[in-house]
Design a protein around this nucleic acid. Structure first.
Lengths: 160, 160
DNA sequence: TATTGTTATACTCTATAACTATA
DNA sequence: TATAGTTATAGAGTATAACAATA
């Protein structure tokens, strides 16, 4: 177990990571913000799925996913077909236009990473992927609540 | 130089990191959201500084810092004293109440990290700190623009 | 009754633009 | 003219709550 000072340093780096996210978001097409990009990426990687599955993979509330998916459907990048097995549900999948958009995004982000990480060794990149993957597995998910850790008796951020 | 597929995987992990941020933000006191916490942390670590320096360290626009600082000043956690050497400027420093708040936050986040990362080796934690630090150094800063990497001819997110 | 998804509301983060005061 | 900071505005992310339709 690491010392509290290492945890504090890690927390600072997490906070500073916002600058990386913002830099990356500037490489996205103006009509596809980061949240929409995440949806397209998951549908491109894992294939068609239901809203609830998508929200689970994104670790966000279903209401968030619902809105992002509506944004993408308006632009013709994904289809929401009814699920014959459960009429409450909808099956999401990329359209050809959505796949083209995803390809465009892939090229943009690859170009950005090549510039920003051009001098990184493959080892360090793989290490970072490994550690971030493990981090994500250990940290929380708003849809499966755990006991709160704040000193406040009751939740913490009213809207979260 | 790594392959585009590694970059794509890294981009997915960056996106998934949002779940970690959200989990961490739930451990904060209800009256001190993540942005305010970042300000308190920097002032606690680096001591008093000007608004512009703070915005530089946070890699956000000065207007963002101005609002966050106002929020903290309203609650009595920081002071904004005039800079005798430049009357346009203000020097920020923590008040005793601000130091107490910071200490409370430190305890909360340490408790959360102990739970979530209790089974991590010190080596992996140090590796993650090292790689995130390097990442932050290589990635961008909204206040020193670089050539855009989107395929769009002109920047990209209207509001960014 | 419980679950899937949608919509309304509210709050945070963030950038751009217009403005004031000072250099 | 240029810089430090404030404020107004707007868009994106996010959660909670109320709701409709279906299981």
């Amino acid at each position: 177990m690491a010392a509290p000072e290492r945890f504090a340093e890690l927390a600072r780096q997490f906070s500073a990571f916002g600058a990386v996210r913002r830099d990356l978001s500037r490489a996205l097409p103006y009509d596809c913000p980061p949240g929409s990009t995440a949806v397209l990426t998951l549908l491109g990687r894992d294939g068609e799925m239901r809203m609830s599955r998508l929200a689970e993979l994104l670790a966000v509330d279903l209401s968030v996913t619902s809105r992002q998916v509506a944004h993408l459907a308006e632009r013709g990048w994904i289809d929401r077909s009814p699920d014959p097995a459960d009429k409450r549900s909808r099956i999401l999948h990329l359209t050809p236009a959505g796949e083209a958009k995803l390809q465009e995004i892939f090229l943009n982000t690859t170009r950005l990473f090549s510039d920003r990480l051009g001098d990184w060794s493959e080892h360090d990149i793989d290490e970072l992927i490994r550690l971030l993957t493990r981090l994500r597995a250990g940290f929380g998910d708003c849809r499966s609540p755990r006991p709160p850790y704040a000193s406040d008796p009751i939740p913490v951020h009213p809207h979260k």
